[in-house]
């Protein structure tokens, strides 16, 4: 009996997950369709670019600076033991550009912007604002969702690029303070060992992470049921879905491009 009950629960959960994945895929199709031809509300796009990107910059820069420094601190014992100061920049830069930068900034962006987006759309859903748009013959996908998806894609990519640069500065500062490695050595360690491919590898990931965060946060926002409690549940589901998506995408992109 216990086995049957467990199987029933597993089956119900699998159906629920499949339904949600299907819903997100359907929304992706609707967003792509709304972009052909692109008819955007420019003001709504600019408003979202500003509040999602500009306001995230300070926290992203702070996190990236210390993440870059952290890479140097972690590698310091080995650099000292082996005397491999010329590789300190490479170690920190490689990890930051390809993995730590996109993942860390993606997760922060999901927690700050994605969760906020789900809560906002969820509140609009339970207060009938989306129905209000439809009643005025305005497509909520085109008017509300597409500008948010584009803003998140553009801004996460931009923030990742900025964050990468700040992280490299952080690594250089910490290397100077902790390992007494001068700026020139760190610069040449970055320049000689890192390739544009390392940089773009992270940028590709940030585009994919941006799409995942945007689509999951919008989907869970517009499918809220059950008032304020439902909004809370949706935010939770969106953050979890975005985090899982980021990790899965990271694995598959790394594996495919290795």
């Amino acid at each position: 009996m216990i086995g049957e009950r467990t199987l029933t629960l597993l089956g119900a959960r699998a159906i629920a997950v499949t339904r949600e994945v299907g819903g997100i895929a359907l929304m992706t199709g609707q967003v792509l369709r709304a972009l052909l031809p692109p008819r955007l509300d420019g003001r709504e796009l600019v408003r979202n670019l500003h509040r999602m990107g500009n306001r995230s910059l300070p926290i992203v820069a702070l996190t990236a600076f210390f993440a870059g420094g952290l890479m140097v601190v972690q590698s310091a014992p080995f650099v000292k033991r082996l005397g491999a100061t010329s590789l300190a920049g490479w170690a920190a830069g490689y990890a930051v550009l390809r993995e730590i930068g996109p993942i860390l900034i993606g997760l922060m962006f999901s927690g700050r912007v994605g969760a906020n987006n789900t809560a906002e759309l969820g509140t609009m859903t339970v207060t009938e604002q989306l129905d209000g748009l439809r009643a005025l013959a305005i497509d909520p996908i085109r008017y509300l969702i597409v500008p948010r998806v584009l803003a998140m894609l553009i801004m996460l990519t931009a923030l990742t690029i900025i964050g990468d640069l700040v992280a490299l500065v952080g690594a250089a500062v910490v290397a100077y303070l902790v390992l007494d490695i001068d700026w020139r050595t760190m610069y040449f360690s970055f320049a000689d060992n890192l390739t544009p491919h390392d940089f773009f590898h992270g940028v590709y990931k940030s585009v994919a992470f941006g799409a995942a965060i945007a689509l999951t946060s919008c989907y869970f926002g517009v499918t809220v049921k059950g008032g304020a409690v439902g909004v809370g549940r949706a935010v939770n589901a969106a953050v979890v879905a975005a985090a899982v998506s980021i990790m899965l995408l990271d694995f598959f992109i790394t594996y495919a491009t290795a």
């Binding site: 408003r47 609009m124 009938e128 604002q129 129905d131 209000g132 439809r134 009643a135 013959a137």
Partner: peptide, 24 residues
Amino acid sequence: SEEKLAPVRARIGMLFQNYALYDF
């Protein structure tokens, strides 16, 4: 479809129970 319904909806006004005033 929603697109086909648009001109029909343009002739209808609606007050929603929860006001549906746009926060933005």
